[in-house]
Design a protein around this nucleic acid. Sequence first.
RNA 1: GCGGGUGUAGCUCAGUGGUAGAGCGUCACGUUGCCAACGUGAAUGUCGACGGUUCGAGCCCGUUCACCCGCUCCA
Length: 517
Amino acid sequence: MATATAPAKSMPQIVALCKRRGFVFPASEIYGGINGFWDFGPLGTQLKNNLRDAWWRDMVHSPPSGPDGQPLEIVGLDSSIIQNPRVWEASGHVSGFSDPMADCRACKARFRADDLIGVELIFPDVPEPNKRNFLICGVGTPEEVLETNTKKIQKLQGANGPYERLSSHHVFSELNEEGRAEFSCPNCGEKGHLTEPREFKLMFETYVGAVRDEESKTYLRPETAQGIFLNYKNVLDTMRVKLPFGIAQIGKAFRNEVTPRNFIYRSREFEQMEMEWFCRPADAPKWFAFWQERRLTWWRSMGLGAENLRVRPHGADELSHYARGGSGTVDIEYRFPFTDPDFAELEGIAHRTDFDLKAHQTQAGIKLEYFDQEHNARYLPHVVEPAAGLTRGVLAVLCEAYTPDPARPSKVYMRFHPKLAPIQAAVFPLVAKDGMPEVAGKLYRELRGRFTCRLDIKQSIGKRYARMDEAGTPYCFTVDGQTLSDQSVTVRHRDTAAQERIGIDHVTDFLAQRIKG
RNA sequence: GCGGGUGUAGCUCAGUGGUAGAGCGUCACGUUGCCAACGUGAAUGUCGACGGUUCGAGCCCGUUCACCCGCUCCA
């Protein structure tokens, strides 16, 4: 790989460029910011819109052909961020989305209180009044806890003889204060230093209407997917769709993350691009494989390097509550500068089975079954879900594009795919005289209707090229003295700084050709 | 939530208790016929915020907020 010798990409420098050039600003910055929220500046907004529109086009307007060569059918949706709170009870988010955590005051370790258990041991050979039970504490199953504490148990046996194990174990999160005091920290071994479990509520709560009581409490959606399941029947009834088909949605989602980190990678307000693919249960594995391959290809077509992308299947223990019992989940991961050499999730493709439709059918009491005329059968479709992070996608595109180059004046340029670049073209007069600004202005007015375009007349030509390098503008067209005599302009290519000369009449075609692919 | 680090102009940073600084960028004018050129001039700061110590705080102390790193977490 040629990248082996490329200078490492530094996250602080990428963040600085994003601020300097108007891609991403800290949210509420003049008030000191707010943890986990970011604003997109003019260029960042355009970049995000371009990525979003590309997804919509490639999913809804012109989805890929299926394995049999037939075009797939996917329709769009835009559901409400706030839904009836029962939605989130049915979906499992109210119960599954808050984790009780306990901290050790002595060593500062943190544990999931429902994973933390204690196994009680009895030593029958010890005579009264010294006879007492010992509690072996740890994380995992009782067997695992005994396994990890073998040495301690051997020591106890040495002093007290053989032991018996109480059949039921204690779960830390279910104990009262007295019970918790008997627990020792699995990390440092100190007894009685674990805090009472505290709930980490990962869903933002809000209240609908003027009266603020439990009745009016609801949530900001933690995923866009549920809005799709809620409208599945509406779409079936109105759109003449037949299985298999998809419903796609792009929108904001909110999670009260414990630790927002890594710039816009894990923020509390973010955007998702989700598509729920409804199919026959028997076909789900086939579609699961199909979408994995298509989605990986799509990210590559957005300019992400193959060497920075990978597909990683989830282990059985990390599957979401809705994805157990299906073909599983895979993540499409990107090698971000802050994870390098490791990777982090960009998109998850999950076989959600009929978990959600079944849950809503039961909870809402509305039949959501599909009548399959071809097979003369009635069933709940299975769902394969490619769920991509738009915000994360923007970050991946920014990181991929960021290219240090000590040889050029800007020292860095943003190598966006031309179709994603927030500014696709710039028009300059070489100098601001002899009628060049007028010709450049005319060209600019022609281009701006079709492309995102900038006209810059001020300052030296080198400065203007340098600015466009940091903005990631792929093509700069310069009107010079020769233009006035032969109607040609120079095209300056961002990635090579090389120039060629084309007719001023061909600029539109030149751009259209390169920005389409 | 814990530990460590950072916070001074748009950016990068200097400034160890005594008048708020530099480079770059930005803007204006001139010059300039292809890569942040040059000349002249200009704007820009509650020194992250609040409180304390002090005659006096960007600097010392406390609190707090944000960002970075590590833990923890990430349905």
